[in-house]
Design a protein around this nucleic acid. Sequence first.
DNA 1: AACCTTCCCAACCGCCGTCAT
DNA 2: TATGACGGCGGTTGGGAAGGT
Length: 299
Amino acid sequence: TILKNKQKVEIIKTGRAPCCDKENVKRGPWSPEEDAKLKEYIDKYGTGGNWIALPQKAGLRRCGKSCRLRWLNYLRPNIKHGEFSDEDDKVICSLYAKIGSRWSIIAAQLPGRTGNDIKNYWNTKLKKKLMPLVSSPQQIRPIHQTTCHSSISPLQANSSLVSSLYSSISPALSLATTAHKYTSSHFYPTSTATNFPGYETNIISTQSSSFLSTCSCSSGGEKLVSYLNDGVDEKQNSSKFSITNGSTNKYAEEKPSGKGCYEEENQLECSLEEIKQLISTTSIYNNYTNFFLDENRTE
DNA sequence: AACCTTCCCAACCGCCGTCAT
DNA sequence: TATGACGGCGGTTGGGAAGGT
């Protein structure tokens, strides 16, 4: 009854029926038998481009979405589970600092990893690795009040990983406090490529290198600009972000929206909003967001 | 040994974009 | 152009495992 009512509410609220009859599908962990069935079916027939119909055809009492998830995150060939390397960490942190929690994009840079995997890794481990980077709220101050140097704890100097992570992520922190020169988080293609060594895909010059150099501005922050920024000079800082992955990337095709983010007069407003969003979704910063969210201080 | 807390990750939920009709 | 179906994604949660007291 609860489920039925929930479905009714969903239809009323969204105008959409649920993707499956939730009463008649199995939920929870997948059994080895179910895995085998799904794998066997997809190996034989492929997904057929229709996940909703797949479970019935495969003889599974599962929601199509659940099958899709199980396949993509676990059963699909070449899935890599287990330890993330330092290099993985760097890539994840750098991209997170640049694009936020776009896990699928980040996953595209790490062959064999799934977005879910990376998301979990970030939420449970990587974030904690970075926690010592911000040892006290007082250390995060707008650049005009302090320097990037002063916000680096001694701990960082002793850990190459941590310092490289810091160099990737600190610009975002600093940016959040300065809110200038930041144009937009929207991405569109440019022709300038910055490669990640060892990865098939390219990170094309980033608008968030404006993150990086904006941070580096007044405070010797150049030292903080990591491997990621190599080869991207100041002039490119206003360029935009894109990822190519052999095929067209939908995010790369995002064009300036009609929301005014690209309109000069709204630049700062939009930046502040976007910065807030980035911060508010980044729980590593959440302990300190009260500070960041104080608009008066960012002015 | 028993209990409690924290960690971890697979799975779910709901929103949004795309595409076919 | 409007609408519905579906896929894709990011955020959240449930529960087992591991660690601590």
